[in-house]
Amino acid sequence: MSEKKELTCIGCPMGCQMEVTMENGVIRSISGATCKKGEIYAAKEVVDPRRIITSIIPVDGGIYAMAPVKTATDIPKDAIRRCMECLKTIRVGAPVSIGQVIVADLGGTGVALIATRDIPKR
């Protein structure tokens, strides 16, 4: 079965509009890219789009109400919603230190959630 996917390259300000033709999950052709970098980006983006997610969680007893957090590595794009739902259930007590693992496996992705800032006790 043949399928076409459209995407915009993020490699540079050109922002080439690219079209990837897939057949049974295999890339058949990439059109619209004006450089090799764009083709490499498109090939990865259509097969396995991933993003690092950054957000905040509430801190009890810290000098700030919220601690910034991120996923330790990128996670599949379609897991973002699920992970954001998980995040809403997480609280942490001060002190929080930068790099601290808050959750070892966020939303079944196998990826840890880590703090990105020191939040000392109030």
């Binding site: 690092i52 950054t54 957000s55 930068i98 990105t116 800032r117």
Partner: peptide, 21 residues
């Protein structure tokens, strides 16, 4: 708090608080 900082300075992708830290 988003990522994307430090690709030139530290050759890795950091969030703003991590870069400033």
């Amino acid at each position: 708090i988003h990522n994307g900082f430090g690709l030139h300075t530290f050759k890795e992708e950091l969030t703003g608080p991590e870069y400033s830290a």
